[in-house]
């Protein structure tokens, strides 16, 4: 019997400042054999232990296809994430997981993928984006529409050119407010989506961002003719155990940590808005 609450001990291998309040971390288990057999799927999350402070939930930022490290992008919003921002390379943390369900890529072979992300929402989509790029032969066109308040607030700026180089991949960047030297679009993500006007034919839309953005992106997608089944998103809830036991992350009888965090809009629209 192994203890489901006991984390793997890991080291901080690299830290990168993404924006004013977001940092990206690379972790590696101290036990290298355990690291080798540790697998996860895009969409799943982990529980990070900052020893002396506590635990917090983050999605895997990298896909299994790039698994030398375990990567997380952390926005400074609470006690644990503030403590995470204090971490330095070489520090020790704990990691338990993976938890939750994942993006059902095997069902999407031969389809176009449309990613729509806002702000730190891209942290939850980087793993599926890179997974699909690494398995590009299984998919048709990949479009990534990403926006933030300002160019300064965009995460993963260093990754964009690699992503774009993959055949039949298109990146559209936007900022609510532009800045000097900004050569991309200016405007809110939903408005840009409308302008880009993607066809729903053979396409799956995968969206993540602040609730208000999700709301308007959903509306645009439905207007464009996407069916609720074609729209996929990932939910955020207060979580403690990640295992369906502590009883706090439910919407109706579903536990976001166990039955989610990935849901289609078809599933969500039948749920009460208690998330």
């Amino acid at each position: 019997m192994s203890n489901i609450y006991k984390p793997h001990i890991a080291k901080v291998m690299d830290i990168k400042v993404e924006t004013g309040d977001i940092k990206s971390f690379k972790f590696q288990f101290v036990d290298q054999a355990a690291q080798k057999v540790f697998t996860w799927k895009s969409g799943q999350f982990l529980i990070l232990n900052i020893f002396g402070v506590g635990e917090a939930v983050f999605t895997f930022a990298n896909p299994q296809t790039r698994n030398e490290f375990i990567e997380c992008s952390i926005r400074k919003v609470g006690l644990a994430s503030e403590a995470a921002h204090e971490l330095e390379v070489g520090d020790t943390v704990g990691i338990r997981g993976p938890y939750g369900n994942w993006f059902p890529f095997e069902k999407w072979h031969g389809k176009n993928l449309l990613y729509v992300a806002g702000g730190v929402g891209l942290a939850a989509l980087r793993s599926p984006i890179e997974f699909s790029l690494d398995n590009k032969k299984d998919f048709k066109n990949i479009t990534i529409l990403y926006g933030a308040r300002s160019p300064m607030d965009l995460c993963y700026k260093d990754k964009f050119s690699d992503w774009e180089q993959v055949k039949d991949t298109n990146m559209i960047l936007t900022a609510d407010k532009g800045a000097e030297g900004w050569k991309h679009k200016v405007g809110f993500v939903p408005a840009v989506l409308k302008e880009v006007h993607p066809s729903p034919k053979d396409t799956v839309a995968i969206i993540c961002g602040p609730p208000i953005m999700i709301k308007f992106v959903l509306k645009e997608l439905l207007d464009l003719g996407f069916t609720p089944e074609q729209i996929i998103t990932t939910l955020e809830m207060r979580m403690k155990c990640g295992l369906g036991k502590c009883g706090r992350c439910n919407v109706k009888h579903l536990y976001i940590c166990k039955d989610g965090p990935v849901f289609s809009y078809a599933e969500l629209k039948d749920l009460p808005e208690e998330y």
């Binding site: 002396g52 402070v53 502590c246």
Partner: peptide, 12 residues
């Protein structure tokens, strides 16, 4: 059965 998981630090 709902529970919380917390950490209590005694010192550094």
């Amino acid at each position: 059965y709902c529970f919380d998981i917390t950490e209590k630090a005694f010192d550094n």
